[in-house]
Design a protein around this nucleic acid. Structure first.
Lengths: 195, 195
DNA sequence: ACAGCCATGTAACTCGTTACATGATTAC
DNA sequence: GTAATCATGTAACGAGTTACATGGCTGT
């Protein structure tokens, strides 16, 4: 049985199709943008269609209709495949591609001002992302109780919000350190001038 | 001048070569594993050699020797390129590929027990990663003062540590919620049985 | 001198992206 | 009826991976 070996993104899309009825490619992309974008990636429109084709070929999805409005439904095999994946496949550790941290690592190649500016822009972007996710979370109020369909999406949205709050905190603290360094540097310069 | 258009990984490797002297491919890979792995990815050995070849071709690196022990040095052009990249190129928002969170999102496809187990494994892995990074941080004690070469790597290591601590906290809280849900479910079942 | 690891690559392949092509609806 | 947008794809490409090939060094 099973042991389909698909990339994580395939299973994630399959998973999104376990909620509610069938979807068109376009609708699936929208759902992905509201949900998995925060914990994985937002697949390109073209990749969504490619995946739908592959999953249909593997009988994990059933397509209904042609052209505009083509709708994809999860098959019994498809549902079994995702469930097996959840049960049997090792989960994998998160990979964080974090450009601001990466740049900070080689911060000696820039001025502290440049770095602080970079982190302040990052702060704003995190605040925006936090606001986006708050909106998503608010949209789930009322359908997020224990047995309800969006209970888990709500749980994970809270994870994301906590994460963004942590990032805000860390970035602010780091900016403060950079500014303190600047003071220390000035102090050293003055000493050198005096000496 | 410049405006080389290279992937981020190339600049990151270039950046690692701005610290200290030249390195062999093998040594560079080791440095990458100790540093950028936490904020970007650990490039495969083969990719390191591929990048070194490309960067050498572009005159951003100079190779010395052949075969075993071939050493790569940053050129003046190379240093200018990384610095320009730091100054001029927009930084980009982090992309987090977070399998536990992704799976939690479609948690209705598994039992709460499976989910809790998954998160507990995740807790252990985060603890391990935290320990690894703590080790890295400890190795920087003494060379991490404001003017010193490893000041910024130390700063960013602290970022990573704070991030892991936040993840521990969030994962623990989520596990607690899952257990509470289980209680709520049982309660509901009992009510249903009674009613 | 032989086994096993260190070190440097090359080749084939997959995921995922951007750019491009095209038809169907809607707005005006 | 024509422009703009919605919707569904295809094609070409690039980053990064695993698997494979190979040669030197090291311990016994």
């Amino acid at each position: 049985m099973g042991a389909q070996d698909l990339p994580v993104t395939s299973y994630a899309l399959l998973g999104l199709l376990t909620i509610g009825d069938g979807l068109t490619g376009y609708e699936l992309k929208q759902r992905a943008d509201r949900t998995m974008r925060f914990y994985w990636t937002a697949p390109a429109m073209s990749q969504v269609y490619t995946e739908l084709a592959r999953l249909t070929r593997a009988d994990l999805l059933r397509r209904e209709g042609r052209g505009r409005g083509t709708t994809y439904f999860l098959t019994t095999t498809g549902r079994a495949a995702v469930e097996e994946w959840m049960r049997e496949t090792p989960c994998g550790f998160p990979v964080f591609k974090h450009p601001p941290a990466l740049r900070l690592m080689i911060g000696h190649l820039a001025t502290p001002e440049t770095l602080a500016t970079m982190l302040e822009e990052y702060l704003e972007q995190v605040a925006d992302a936090h606001a986006d996710l708050t909106e998503v979370r608010r949209g789930l109020v009322g359908v997020d109780a224990v047995g309800q369909p969006f209970h888990y999406p709500a749980l994970v949205a809270e994870w994301g919000l906590a994460h963004f709050e942590s990032e805000l905190e860390i970035a602010r603290r780091t900016i403060a350190k950079l500014r303190a360094d600047l003071g220390a540097d000035l102090g050293a310069d003055l000493e050198a001038d005096a000496g």
